[in-house]
């Protein structure tokens, strides 16, 4: 017993959700000379963009009337929709079926006399939840129109709402008018870029490429697939293939569209890879911009010195998502007993878990989550158990306590990379009364 390794704990500073959002001053822009957190360095080899969480007090889409508890509940509801959509898409891909294959027959394409694309057909039903939590500000077209786009590593296509609208959701600021942009360029139906779309069609009268993207949670967009210029305050990139959506459904956080960061060939990183920035990017996400800020970086400076790497895995049927091989989870320094197949992707021999910017709460297969939950509860016998909250099932009443000890939770990846999580990444407040929950969930919830 003397030689048994001591459990590893760390201190959680108890600070429940405020009764209302405090005013948070805009963080001084530590990126230096840039405006709003964008700069170009190293002779165009690095691009840095500030990201903002949709519920942050700094967000232009923030709802000042919503309480932090309401915002959290809404966030978890969005998360359920997104996780379900990813699950369905992945399972379909394992059978060689793409989610978009399910809707193609229900949509009819027609072209108006003036060449404007129109779409008719039954609309998809279901949850109309936003597909992402963080957004960037960028310029579209020439001259650039400032817009906000949701970033999403679970999507490949860049798109924004365009006039004329067959059906557009309400967005912050004016909808992009391609007629006012000198850099807007239609893509022909026979262009290679058009054929790279998962789902495309052709407007016969104008020989222009049409795209459609369905997100599986009820959200979708369809319109012209075009080339356009994107500007990031100091850096402008022309000829970016993107969707100009005339029929868009879903609550994309009032943003103008979606900035696809997925692994497919039409995502922004993939298109940049063909240009100048080496197909390397990174992001850092913060909840409330209190210490440090969220940012998205492309190019050589996107890789910090102390980075631990693990191989990216390929899913032969679905190249959108970024998979890694999670080989273990430790609680308090002890590896959990989890069967190796817990994190396998499908029956094709591939394995891995998805690293996603747009899903909030980590979902684990029940055979992995069960041991995690049990080990965490066993390591916290003195904390007053408080049942569950939303998709969380392990909560504690920490009211009246300033600091508590919780076991260290680490994720271990192939190649030795380890994410030793700060306490705030897995024990989170859910109300103003001091209730905290273990912020993991079973992937089977809501299945």
């Amino acid at each position: 017993a003397r030689h048994r390794r001591q459990p590893r704990y760390q201190v959680l500073h108890v600070s429940p959700l405020p009764s209302k959002w405090q005013e948070v001053p805009r963080v001084a822009d530590s990126l230096g000379q840039s405006e709003k957190g964008v700069r170009k360095v190293d002779n165009s080899t690095t691009l840095i963009l500030r990201l903002t969480h949709r519920d942050s007090p700094l967000s232009p889409f923030a709802n000042p009337k919503a309480s932090p508890r309401e915002l959290l509940k809404n966030r978890l509801a969005r998360d359920e929709a997104r996780a379900s959509a990813i699950s369905v898409r992945t399972k379909l891909a394992a059978r060689g079926i793409r989610a978009n294959d399910l809707v193609v027959e229900s949509v009819n394409y027609t072209a108006r006399e003036q060449g404007v694309v129109d779409f008719a057909g039954p609309l998809m039903s279901g949850l109309k939840q936003g597909s992402g939590e963080y957004f960037i500000e960028l310029g579209v077209g020439s001259p650039p129109r400032q817009t906000y786009m949701v970033i999403d590593t679970g999507s490949d296509i860049i798109w924004l709402q365009c006039t004329p609208c067959v059906d557009c959701y309400t967005q912050s600021g004016p909808i992009f008018d391609p007629a006012l942009s000198s850099s807007y360029e239609s893509l022909a139906c026979t262009s290679p870029l058009c054929s790279m779309l998962e789902l495309h069609s052709c407007a016969a009268q104008t020989n222009s490429c049409l795209y459609q993207v369905a997100y599986g949670d009820g959200s979708f967009t369809q319109g012209d697939f075009v080339l356009e210029a994107l500007s990031f305050r100091g850096a402008t990139m022309g000829g970016i293939a993107m969707g100009c959506g005339h029929d868009n459904e879903g609550l994309f956080a009032s943003a103008a569209g979606l900035f696809g960061l997925g692994g497919g060939p039409l995502s922004f990183p993939s298109q940049l890879g063909n240009l100048l920035l080496r197909r390397v990017f990174s992001y850092c996400l913060m909840d409330r911009d209190e210490s440090g800020f969220s940012s998205l970086m492309f190019g050589s400076a996107a890789v910090p010195m102390n980075t631990q790497f693990t191989p990216l895995l390929k899913n032969p049927n679905l190249n959108t998502y970024y998979y890694v091989s999670l080989v273990g989870i430790s609680v308090g320094g002890s590896m959990l007993s989890i069967p190796p197949q817990a994190f396998r992707m499908d029956g094709n021999g591939g394995g891995g878990v998805i690293v996603d910017s747009g899903t909030s709460v980590t979902r684990l297969a029940e055979v992995a989550y069960g041991p995690l939950r049990s080990a965490f509860r066993e390591a916290t016998p003195d904390l007053p158990f408080a049942g569950g909250f939303s998709l969380f099932d392990t909560c504690y009443n920490l009211s009246g306590q300033a600091n508590v000890r919780v076991p260290l939770v680490s994720l271990h990846f192939e190649g030795g990379a380890e994410m030793a999580l700060p306490t705030s990444n897995y024990v989170i407040p859910v109300d103003t009364e001091g209730t905290y929950c273990l912020a993991f969930a079973s992937a089977e919830i809501g299945a």
Partner: peptide
């Protein structure tokens, strides 16, 4: 399907290296 969500990613810089086909984590890089 298991997914590592953004609450667990907070405070880490998540690096996607499409050239070397690897993904990286760097703590305290926001």
């Amino acid at each position: 399907v298991s997914i590592i969500g953004n609450i667990q990613q907070q405070g880490f810089r998540i690096v996607f290296d499409g050239v070397s086909s690897r993904l990286g984590f760097a703590a305290n890089q926001c």
